[in-house]
């Protein structure tokens, strides 16, 4: 196996994970125009639910995965109803919403650490024993293959949903102008609530997949969120296709970057990319 094909494969897998976080983040930003920093914790909630239901209680794996995604979705929905909606009603600035989400992130992450300790844990019992496939001269594990397939399925499903349903059109209308959407009879609070639910479910799935691929720890949400944020901004904030594009660009830059530099600088490389974009193209690749 050559190093370049392997790096390309790794970049694509990283890109798939990041895009799952980025599309939810971008969707929420589009509808509400604030950076929801609590979004990453949904990934940790997903991962830890599967850890608890499947590994600790020994329930069926598929059931645990469904519960994990549902739970992440419900908590995301709950945050909107309890915190963000009252703030929106009061026409609070984006900064107030951002600080509130920072608070929600801090509190939820610490609660997870209290419940499950802050140690690194694995979900799947036998990581070394899973099937390995060879593609174009690089290797990919079964989990990583599942990551790719589910990311592509989710992206395609979401794209269809946004394009062809009334719900998708309502989201687009709210993203363009919330006030006008209200006037034409769209129940914006309900739609935004659903957006939080869907975005959080997808983030929960991302957390579960990362959990199977490497493992879980309470702070996993933060690093995933950071990557999702970078991907969204690099791609073009508020546009989910931009988010996906940014996610794969980030995956490639990171993986080729650590090939030349070294692994510990991964986060710094990612933020370097963000800052380059903030300076030279703050609206992202897809400029709208």
């Amino acid at each position: 196996m050559g190093i370049i094909p392997q790096l390309i494969l790794n970049s694509i897998i990283a890109g798939a994970i990041y895009s799952l976080v980025a599309i939810g983040f971008s969707l929420i930003y589009g509808a509400t125009k604030f950076f929801n920093l609590a979004h990453g914790v949904m990934a940790a909630i997903g991962g830890y639910s599967v850890f608890y239901f499947a590994k600790t209680l020994g329930w069926d794996l598929w059931l645990a995965v469904s519960i994990g995604m549902l739970l992440a979705g419900l908590i995301g929905y709950g945050l909107d109803k309890i915190i963000y909606k009252p703030l929106r009603k009061r026409k609070a600035s984006n900064m107030v919403l951002l600080v509130a989400s920072l608070g929600a992130f801090t509190a939820l992450q610490a609660i997870i650490a209290i419940l499950f300790t802050s140690q690194f844990q694995t979900i799947s019992g036998n990581i070394g024993a899973q099937n390995i496939y060879e593609i174009f001269g690089g290797v990919i594990t079964q989990t990583q293959l599942i990551i790719l397939i589910s990311a592509i399925t989710i992206m395609a499903g979401l794209a269809l949903l946004l394009k062809y349903t009334m719900f998708g059109k309502a989201i687009k209308a709210i993203s363009d102008d919330e006030e006008v959407s209200k006037i034409v009879g769209i129940n914006t609070d309900k739609i935004i609530g659903y957006v939080f639910f869907i975005g959080s479910v997808i983030a929960g799935l991302a957390g579960i997949l990362v959990g199977f691929d490497t493992g879980i720890k309470p702070t996993m949400g933060l690093s995933l969120l950071l990557k999702g944020v970078i991907a969204s901004i690099v791609g073009g904030i508020g546009n989910i296709y931009g988010g996906v594009l940014g996610a794969f660009l980030l995956g490639f830059v990171e993986n080729f970057g650590i090939w030349k530099i070294s692994g510990e600088w991964k986060d710094a490389i990612a933020f370097g990319l963000l800052i380059v974009f903030l300076i030279f193209r703050p609206r992202g690749i897809i400029n709208n």
Binding site: L87, A100, T106, A107, A110
Partner: peptide
């Protein structure tokens, strides 16, 4: 960790009910 929970809740509650803080002169 409890401390982090409390700090987080303080931020949320302040944003919801008193964005200018105890004796602030500017709201975010």
């Amino acid at each position: 960790q409890m401390r982090q929970v409390v700090y987080g809740l303080i931020l949320i509650l302040l944003m919801l009910y008193r964005p200018q803080g105890l004796i602030g002169e500017y709201k975010l």
